[in-house]
Design a protein around this nucleic acid. Structure first.
Lengths: 336, 336
DNA sequence: CTGAAAGCGCTAACAT
DNA sequence: ATGTTAGCGCTTTCAG
C-alpha cells in the first residue's frame, strides 16, 4: 500500500506466469477475449495475493477518460438541497467507478472557471450543474466547445438540452386544494418579484386557481422586491391593513414560509389554527419550526441520480432524453 | 477543446520550434533550468496560440501523484457545517491546483471504503475527514498503511495525530458570563447524555461555572437520553414543576436550542424577555428562528483551510503541527 | 541552454 | 487462448 512499492499489473503478470495483457483481459473481463479458466484463476489469485489495485490514473490516461465528473453548485444555494442531490449523483457514479470532483462556480471570465479548467486539463469528463444560475454565455460556451454537461434545476426553462427539471404543478394543485377545502377561500400567495423560477411558481399558482375554479384576488397576492427586509415589510403592511394574516398562505419558498411563521409568532397568530402556511421547497429545518412546516418538495436525490445517468448517455453518445421532468410532492406537516 | 484533437506539449514544441522538454521547463518554471528569454517567449506564445492545456492525468501519472484530495464526511452531519468546511478546503486546494474528490463513509469493511479504494488506486493523495465518526479500526488502518490523512473535528479527542480541533471554552465563558450578568443566576444547562463531544461540552460548562464562581445547581441541569422525544419531554417536565422555564438556558446543540424556542413559542413564553436561549453550534437557520438564535459557533471555513494545509504538510513530509486547536466564537443574536 | 530518450502503468491492435 | 508491442502525454535524467 505504501506509495513507494506499489504493485503493478506487471508484477501480477509475473506472479501468475502470464503476460501483462492477460492480466488486463482477466481483470477487466474484456468481452470477446476467451481466457482459459485455470489462467483466469491464476491471475485472480496472484492479484489477491499481491493485493493489487489497478492504477486508475494510468488507466485514465490510456483510456483518455478522466473517470471523474465535475459537480458545480452555487455557494449561495441551500446546501441542504445540494447535498441531497449530490447523494443521488454519487450513487449513480459508484457503480461506474467514477468519482465526483467538486467545483466552485466563481470566476471572472468563463475560460478560467474551475470546471472549464478541469475539463480542459482532462481532470473531468463532464459537468453536472446543480442549482446553478447559468448565463447564456456559459451555456453557449459549453455547447460550442462540445463539453458534456447536464443541468439540474437551473434558472433556464426547458430551452436548453440535457437538463433535469421538475414540475410542481400537481403538488401545488394538491396543496391548494387541501388548503381551500380545509380553510376556505381566504387564501393568499406570498412571493418575491424575481427570476423565472419565481415567476414559474407564481404562474403555477395562477393556473391552479383556474383549474380549481377559484377566483383570483389581487389583494391576496403578496409580492415584494428582492431584498432582505421586503418579506417582513410586506407582511407587516398586510397585517396593518387587515389586523390579521390570510387564513392560509402559500409561500414561494421555504425561506418565506419560515419568515411567515416567525412573523406569526411575533404577532401571536397561531399556526395553523388562525393561519395555515405551506412553503415551496425543501430545507432541513422544516421540522424545527413551530409548527413544523408543510411543504411542496422536490425529489432531490432522484434528481441527482437521473441527472448523472443522463450525463453518461451524453458521454457514451447514446440517444437519451434531452429533458427529464420529475414531479414534486406535497408533504403535509404541522403548519397546514 | 474537442477531446479528439487535444493539443499536447508536443504540438506546442513543434509550433515553437523547440523540444518537448523545453516546453515543460518553461511552462513549469522548473528551478535550476535557465531558458533564453526569446525561447521562453516563443513557447509561451505557441502555447497561447494553440490554446494548450497540459493534460493533468499524464502529469499525475508521471509525478505519481493524484493531485486530488479525498474528502469524507458522514451524511448524517449537518450539511451546512460540512459545506462551510469544504469551502475552506477548496480555497486551500485551489492555489495548489489540486482537486477535491467527494467520498462517502459507508461501507461494511474498511478495505472497501470508498476513500480507501480511491487511495489504493491512486485517485487521491490523502484524505480529509470532516465531522466524521471514526472507529479505532479506521484510524489504525490509516496509520498502519501510512495513508496521509487529516481529521477535522471527530469523535476522538487529541489522542491521535493530524487533527484540527476546536476549543469552545473561551466562547462558553463569554456567553455564560453575559447570560448571568444580564439575567441573573437562574441559569440552566440543557443537553443530552451522549458521546464524548457532549460530555466535553458539559464539562466546559462545569469548568466555566467554577471559573466564574457560580454555584452548581443540580436542578438546573436538564439532561436526557438520546432520542427524538427526549428533548421536549424534559422541557415539559421542568415546565410542569416550575410553571416556567429557567431565566436563561445554554443548550449543548443548536438543534436543542431551536427546540427550546419551539417549546417556548408553544407555551407562550417570550424569548429573551422571559427566557434567554443560547445554542452551541452553527446552523444556517439561526436567523430564521424567532427570535434569531444566539450561538457559540465554530470557525468552519478556517477549519477546512487549516486542515488542508496540514494535510499538505504531511504529504510533503514537512514537520508541521500534529494538532491544531481553533477557538469558537460567541455570536449574540436575538435570543439572548 | 536545449534536445533525445526513457519510462510512469495501463490497454488494445496485431501476431502467434 | 495468450504474448508482443506500441503508445497515451508528461517529466527528467543525461548528453551535447
Amino acid at each position: 500500500m505504501d506509495k513507494c512499492k506499489r504493485v503493478s499489473s506487471k508484477d501480477v503478470a509475473k506472479e501468475a506466469g502470464v503476460s501483462q495483457a492477460t492480466v488486463s483481459y482477466v481483470l477487466n473481463n474484456v468481452e470477446g477475449v476467451k481466457i482459459k479458466p485455470e489462467t483466469r484463476e491464476a491471475v485472480l489469485e496472484a492479484a489477491k495475493k499481491l493485493n493489487y489495485h489497478p492504477n486508475l490514473i494510468a488507466k485514465s490516461m490510456r483510456l483518455r477518460k478522466a473517470m471523474s465528473i465535475g459537480v458545480v453548485s452555487d455557494k449561495s444555494m441551500s446546501s441542504y438541497m445540494t447535498m441531497n442531490v449530490l447523494e443521488g449523483v454519487r450513487d449513480a457514479l459508484l457503480s461506474r467507478n467514477y468519482t465526483m470532483t467538486l467545483c466552485s462556480n466563481k470566476s471572472e471570465d468563463i475560460e478560467s472557471a474551475e470546471y472549464i479548467r478541469y475539463y480542459s486539463s482532462n481532470r473531468i469528463d463532464g459537468i453536472i450543474f446543480v442549482f446553478t444560475k447559468l448565463s447564456e454565455e456559459q451555456i453557449n460556451y459549453l455547447i460550442e466547445n462540445n463539453i458534456p454537461y447536464v443541468v439540474i434545476h437551473t434558472n433556464f426553462g426547458n430551452e436548453i438540452s440535457h437538463m433535469v427539471n421538475t414540475n410542481m404543478e400537481e403538488a401545488v394543485h394538491e396543496a391548494i386544494k387541501q388548503l381551500v377545502e380545509s380553510y376556505g377561500t381566504d387564501f393568499a400567495y406570498f412571493g418575491v418579484h424575481a427570476g423565472r423560477l419565481e415567476n414559474m411558481r407564481y404562474n403555477t399558482y395562477l393556473k391552479t386557481l383556474d383549474k380549481l375554479g377559484l377566483e383570483f384576488k389581487e389583494d391576496k397576492v403578496l409580492k415584494f422586491e428582492t431584498n432582505e427586509e421586503g418579506a417582513i415589510e410586506t407582511l407587516e403592511e398586510y397585517y396593518r391593513k387587515n389586523t390579521t394574516l390570510p387564513r392560509s398562505i402559500l409561500c414561494d419558498s421555504a425561506y418565506l414560509a419560515l419568515n411567515v411563521l416567525k412573523f406569526a409568532a411575533q404577532k401571536g397568530i397561531r399556526v395553523p389554527e388562525q393561519t395555515a402556511v405551506i412553503g415551496i421547497g425543501t430545507t432541513n429545518f422544516t421540522a424545527f419550526s413551530y409548527p413544523s412546516l408543510s411543504a411542496i418538495e422536490a425529489p432531490l436525490a432522484r434528481m441527482g441520480y437521473i441527472g448523472c445517468d443522463m450525463l453518461f448517455d451524453v458521454l457514451e453518445n447514446k440517444p437519451g432524453q434531452d429533458v427529464i421532468v420529475l414531479k414534486w410532492e406535497y408533504i403535509q406537516r404541522g403548519s397546514s
